[in-house]
Amino acid sequence: MPELPEVEVVRRGLEPRTVGRRIEDLEVLDPRILRRQSGGVDRLRGALAGTRMTAAVRRGKFLWWRLADETGQDTGEALMAHLGMSGQLRVRTPAEATAPAASEGPAPDPLRHRRLSLHLDDGTAIDLIDQRIFGGLWASPLEPGADGAPAGLGSPDALLPAAAAGLARDLLDPAADLPAVARALRTRRAGVKSLLLAQDLVSGIGNIYADEALWEARTRFDTPGTALSQRRALAILRAAGEVMERALAVGGTSFDALYVDADGRSGYFARSLAAYGRDGSPCTRCGTVLRRVLHQGRSSHFCPRCQRPVPRSRKDVP
Rank of each mutant, 00 (worst) to 15 (best):
Q73R: 14
A68W: 06
R92G: 03
D127M: 08
P106E: 08
M85D: 09
P94T: 10
R90N: 06
D130R: 11
A101H: 14
A125M: 10
R92H: 00
A97V: 05
L128M: 14
L128Q: 14
A97N: 02
P106K: 14
L79D: 11
L118S: 10
G135F: 00
T71H: 09
D74K: 10
P110M: 03
A78Y: 02
L116F: 01
D130L: 04
T124P: 09
M80C: 11
A78P: 10
T124H: 13
A78F: 00
S117C: 09
M85G: 08
A97M: 00
M85W: 03
L120R: 13
D121P: 14
L89M: 14
G76M: 06
Q73K: 13
M85P: 08
P110S: 03
L120F: 03
G72K: 07
H119M: 07
M85V: 07
L89W: 07
R90Q: 12
T71S: 12
D121I: 06
A81R: 11
L116V: 05
T75Y: 00
L111R: 15
P108C: 05
A125R: 15
H119T: 14
A125I: 01
A97L: 01
S86C: 05
G76L: 07
E96D: 13
G76W: 04
H82F: 05
I133T: 15
G136F: 01
H119E: 12
T75K: 06
H119G: 07
A99Y: 00
D127E: 15
L89H: 10
P110I: 03
R90P: 03
A99C: 10
A107S: 13
P106C: 01
A99N: 04
L89F: 06
D74W: 00
P100E: 06
D122E: 05
H82G: 09
T71E: 12
W138T: 08
A99T: 11
P106M: 04
D109N: 14
S86D: 13
R114G: 10
G72D: 07
V91D: 14
A68N: 12
S86I: 06
I129T: 12
P94F: 03
G87E: 05
Q88N: 14
S86L: 06
G135R: 06
D121A: 05
A99Q: 13
T93Y: 03
L118D: 08
A68D: 15
E104R: 14
L111I: 12
R112H: 06
E70T: 09
A101Q: 15
A95V: 02
I129K: 11
D74I: 01
F134N: 11
